[in-house]
């Protein structure tokens, strides 16, 4: 996955992304951080062609996404799993149906459909809630259902937009462990988040956006940049960021 000089100007809005370039190798686990409005969601939406950038090139698994013909879009999206910031579960379908929906759409049916759906629900720990409707379960459970739907078709690349937003730290940690586990089986991960402690705890590659520009790319970063963390550690040695801090490294 590669972005080259990508910029995005929303229809009537400000410049959401400006000359963003980076590369993610297969199997990597990458956090995308930045203040609200810095362009994280916009960047993820460019990757699954929900949005077309106004400039630059985007490569996913050898396909250039921006110039992709409309007919090619479904096959691009089948390679991706996406956890949307607003879940996008269908309110009139059970969690099971919501998850199996992603398989129906790509022509899976019968026993494999049931098996894989149950597997995915079980993996995110909401199998007991399978027959419930989204409004009958908690926000965290909805979020996990959204995650189950994103992984059920075994995507090569998982895009997650705030997968731990609105969750308590413990549940967040659980989701993050799940994401790491999924990553271990080879799925490339790009996770947009505000969750500072979690980013610090996991200690993986961090991309930081600021006002639509990529301002940091650290191989094993924390939520704050290395310099700030050093400053913090000097001030309060006990509460410093966790994880080894290395210098920034171009993608």
């Amino acid at each position: 996955m590669k972005l080259a000089h990508v910029s995005l100007q929303h229809a009537r809005g400000a410049l959401a992304l400006e000359d963003v370039s980076f590369k993610v190798e297969p199997g990597e686990f990458v956090f995308l951080i930045g203040q609200t409005g810095s362009g994280k969601s916009s960047l993820l939406k460019i990757l699954n062609r929900e949005l077309k950038p106004t400039g630059g090139e985007v490569w996913v698994d050898g396909t250039e996404v921006t110039s992709l013909h409309r007919r090619g879009v479904p096959s691009l999206r089948r390679k991706l799993g996406v956890v949307f910031q607003d879940f996008r579960l269908l309110p009139d379908r059970t969690l099971f149906e919501n998850v199996s929906f992603a398989l129906r759409v790509i022509g899976v049916h019968g026993k494999p459909l049931n098996q894989r759906t149950i597997e995915a629900l079980d993996r995110v720990g909401i199998l007991p809630r399978a027959r419930m409707f989204p409004h009958q379960v908690s926000g965290g459970e909805q979020q996990r259902a959204a995650l189950a739907r994103a992984i059920v078709n075994r995507p090569q690349l998982l895009l997650a937009d705030e997968p731990t937003g609105n969750l308590d730290p413990e549940t967040s940690r659980g989701i993050m462990d799940l994401l790491l586990e999924i990553n271990c089986s080879g799925t490339t991960m790009l996770i947009a988040t505000h969750d500072q402690p979690l980013v610090d705890a996991v200690g993986r590659r961090v991309l930081e956006l600021q006002g639509g520009r990529l301002v940091r790319d650290e191989a094993q970063g924390g939520y704050d940049s290395a310099e700030i963390q050093q400053d913090l550690e000097e001030l309060h040695p006990a509460t410093g960021g966790s994880g080894a801090v290395k210098g920034s490294e171009p993608g």
Partner: peptide
């Protein structure tokens, strides 16, 4: 919209 985003064909 959801169908489109999970890769359903037209």
């Amino acid at each position: 919209r959801v169908m489109q985003l999970v890769g359903a064909t037209n």
